[in-house]
Design a protein around this nucleic acid. Structure first.
Lengths: 261, 261
DNA sequence: AAGAAAGTTCCATTAAATGGAACTTAAGTT
DNA sequence: AACTTAAGTTCCATTTAATGGAACTTTCTT
């Protein structure tokens, strides 16, 4: 086992509730001998990975890590990152997941991860669907203000199915729901029997916005699994939002009726 | 020499112009054997320090580093506080503001708030500039004793421009001015046509020190506005100094010639 | 399909990491 | 101020990992 493993473990000790570590912290958290902990922290400081707080025995991440971490944002584009987390979620859940972007009033899938189930939703990359009549679309439209949405749909629209919004007021009401709940949902809208759950996230630095979506046959998913899907999507999106410091991100807020069995 | 040294060297290869590295990049940049480079990159990926770009042979910083780097700001809460007040000042004034730290004889920008004006100073985070030849640098050097400054520059330096200090004595004279005035100022030093005003502040509890800076095109700012900038910066820094009980803080003291119209 | 360039694996040699114990320093306690 | 305990550092023989040259494989180029 390389010392790199130990060094990475040290980095993983840091969290929002632990901004610095000491020798004894490492002993208790990682179960390593005091001697190792002492030398490792010093070595990491000497290499510029950590720095001591003042001249105390406390160590915290150093500037180098802040700089390299900053680069991660640019190195991995928003779509790449969204694709990575959504692919992971798809693997766990087994249903089809994809990443979409909005261009005007249309939604375009940019990456897809087909599910493992025999009955699965197949989304082809590049397909265009109307934004107002899909969960991905509403997840992204919810990031706009109501007046921006009205401006976008100043010529109105016609609902393609029973469950899609009929007019702009109905659309705005559903966008308000998306904002308060933290996710968008559709069933039987674009395709009969298909249920979809989406969460939107953006990167203020580049202006990009994407929707993460998991789509599945409505008949196949029980309430508990639906909640699991919502949770995993929201978690994945929240991770990205934290990274990009997305201020327009709507965190998950499950209502009582949602959380009840 | 530990493998940590090599790993830290790899991290230092990343920059705003190099978002990912390959085996051959390391061979040329660090002069290490191909075999080492290959194994090192793989090991760093296995430990979660790097990730491969798609399934190519390119490596970039991984999420772990982004997360730990993010913590740096909060660990060094002084930076966070400075960023908040400086961002506020930038909003009011409309010019570019940033927070910098000193590492030896170099100054590194850690956070930036771009101005609103069409002609604005753009500072990229992570850029290194010489401390003696910048307002941010002198704001921080002024917090040292003259003998510490002499020790730091025992090998001397060469002025990069006409308006920068020529030698150590000239630098010390300008640091004395900074201490009595309560702010540092530069024009045409790092970049022609750019004027900058900085104030330094520290936190005795952690030993951290930062410079708050507002930077603008020299041609754009009239004497009155310059005074407003000095005042807002000094006020913001004084607020932090009061909070941290910074005893080495130099309060604003405008001379008669400054206050006169 | 041949050639070149980039990356990986192998292996004996060299160098670093390990963990227990002794030692030093810092922080309470009486 | 002397005592006690906790926290951190250094030492050393042993174990384990890193090194770099060369052979090998993959990938790109013409």
């Amino acid at each position: 086992m390389s010392i790199l493993t130990a060094a990475a473990d040290v980095l993983r000790c840091f969290s929002s509730t632990r901004h610095d570590v000491t020798v004894t912290d490492l002993v208790t958290l990682l179960g390593m001998p005091k001697s190792n902990a002492s030398r490792l922290l010093r070595a990491m400081r000497d290499e510029g990975l950590l720095e001591t707080v003042g001249d105390s025995k406390r160590y915290r991440p150093a500037l180098l890590l802040a700089q390299v971490g900053q680069l991660y944002r640019f190195a991995a584009s928003l779509i790449d990152r969204a694709d990575a987390v959504v692919g992971c979620a798809s693997n766990v859940i087994g249903h089809t997941a994809y990443v979409s972007v909005r261009r005007g009033t249309e939604i375009i899938a940019v990456t897809a991860h087909p599910g493992r189930h025999a009955l699965r939703v197949v989304t082809s990359i590049g397909d265009r669907i109307p934004a107002f009549a899909s969960s991905t679309g509403r997840a992204l439209l919810a990031r706009l203000s109501d007046e921006d949405v009205r401006a976008l749909y100043k010529d109105g629209f016609t609902a393609p199915s029973q469950t899609a919004p009929r007019d702009i007021d109905e659309l705005l009401a559903r966008l308000a729901e998306v904002r308060s709940a933290g996710f968008a949902e559709s069933h039987d809208e674009a395709v009969r029997g298909v249920h979809a759950i989406s969460v939107g996230v953006g990167d203020p630095a580049t202006g990009d916005e994407v929707a993460l979506c998991i789509s599945f046959p409505a008949a196949m998913v029980e309430p508990g699994e639906r909640l699991a899907i919502i949770n995993s999507l929201a978690e994945a999106a929240a991770e990205i939002a934290a990274l990009t410091q997305d201020k327009r991100f709507f965190p998950l807020k499950l209502s009582l009726s949602e959380t009840a069995p």
